[in-house]
């Protein structure tokens, strides 16, 4: 017994010392690693390169990155975004935090496909400078124009969408509103959720898959069995047609059939442009839910089931 106590004491003090050391060795302000964007050798996509900036404040880091962008030829590492003739003449930051980059006149000479990559790569790189809320391009003193004559305006990272031409899947974030039930099983309660999903999947499918996965918030209960599989879902003329497999009815949860029904309907209407929903089971549009509910109907948003709030348990 005595030996065990002694051992534990030694171990704990060693651990404590280690923790202190680790904490002490953290510098006050450690610079964070950022991602530099460069052009790949085929000149048709961006390449991400990790980079540790020497500076940490807004103006100093901005200046550092501008210097980096200006390096051409042998000085640069990899393929610099800007072609040889184009330079950043000057820059400034507005009160609202918009970084304005003034380019030399040769910017206009760039081919359209190259110019887009330059825009995206430059904006995405500079958006990592602290306190920058957007980036706008100017050529000399004139704002950058689109081909059709409008101003390009302020850009952020979200202004751009990348689709990869390889087997890498592109993913995206979206917020979904899902309708689960509460403990009584007689009402629908909304739950919002941010989901990271493959961008090749339409939102309506993702919404229903999340519904099947079940609720995350406390006090929420699932409305459809988690083994439910969605065969197809189609949106046409503001009507959403959802076809589930047999598990939807065969393994239905012990709820009044209108709860799963309107859980699906409301979820779909909330997350798409649909105004009506038609549900079918394994291709059969004339199936029945429970004894009374015929599926061969256009179901619309059900407000009533939402408006009977019960006290929180």
């Amino acid at each position: 017994m005595k030996k065990t106590i002694k051992r534990t004491a030694v171990f704990l003090s060693a651990a404590l010392l280690l923790c202190i050391h680790v904490m002490a060795s953290q510098p006050e302000e450690e610079g964070k690693e950022i991602t530099l964007y460069r052009i790949n050798s085929a000149e048709n996509a961006l390449e991400a390169v990790a980079y540790m900036p020497a500076e940490t404040t807004t103006s100093e880091m901005a200046e550092e990155l501008v210097q980096l962008f200006d390096k051409k030829g042998e000085d640069a590492n990899g393929n610099p975004i800007l072609p040889d003739e184009v330079r950043i003449a000057s820059w400034s930051v507005t009160e609202e935090g918009v970084l304005e980059l003034h380019f030399t006149a040769d910017y206009k000479e760039m081919a359209g496909t190259r110019e887009i990559l330059v825009r995206a790569g430059t904006v995405k790189t500079f958006m990592q400078v602290p306190d920058v809320t957007g980036v706008s391009f100017l050529i000399g003193e004139d704002p950058l124009m689109t081909q059709r004559g409008g101003e390009v305006g302020v850009m952020t990272g979200d202004s751009f969408v990348e689709l990869f031409s390889s087997d890498r899947e592109s993913y995206r974030y979206d917020t979904f509103t899902l309708y689960f039930t509460d403990k009584s099983g007689e009402n629908l309660v909304p739950e919002t959720r941010r989901v990271y999903y493959r961008s090749s999947i339409p939102k309506m499918r993702v919404a229903l898959e999340q519904l099947a996965k079940g609720p995350i918030d406390k006090g929420h209960y699932p409305t459809i069995p988690d083994s439910t599989k969605l065969n197809t879902v189609i949106l046409s003329d503001k009507v959403c047609y959802a076809d589930f497999d047999r598990a939807f009815t065969d393994q239905a949860l012990a709820l009044e059939p209108q709860i799963p029904l309107y859980s699906v309907v409301n979820t779909l209407i909330a997350n798409t442009e649909a105004e009506k929903v038609e549900i079918s089971i394994a291709g059969n549009a004339e199936a029945k839910l429970g004894d009374d509910i015929e599926l061969y109907n256009y179901y619309q948003w059900n407000e009533d089931l939402l408006n009977e709030p019960r006290e929180e348990e």
């Binding site: 496909t113 751009f160 990348e162």
Partner: peptide, 30 residues
């Protein structure tokens, strides 16, 4: 996608209005 690489219409309703970077689109423009 129009000539400014802007997404004019997205049938998924997700990325309308953004600038698209896609090697395939660039190749098609060329």
């Amino acid at each position: 996608i129009d000539r400014d690489f802007k997404i004019v219409k997205d049938t998924y309703g997700a990325d309308t209005g953004k600038i698209l970077l896609s090697p395939m689109v660039s190749a098609c423009f060329r």
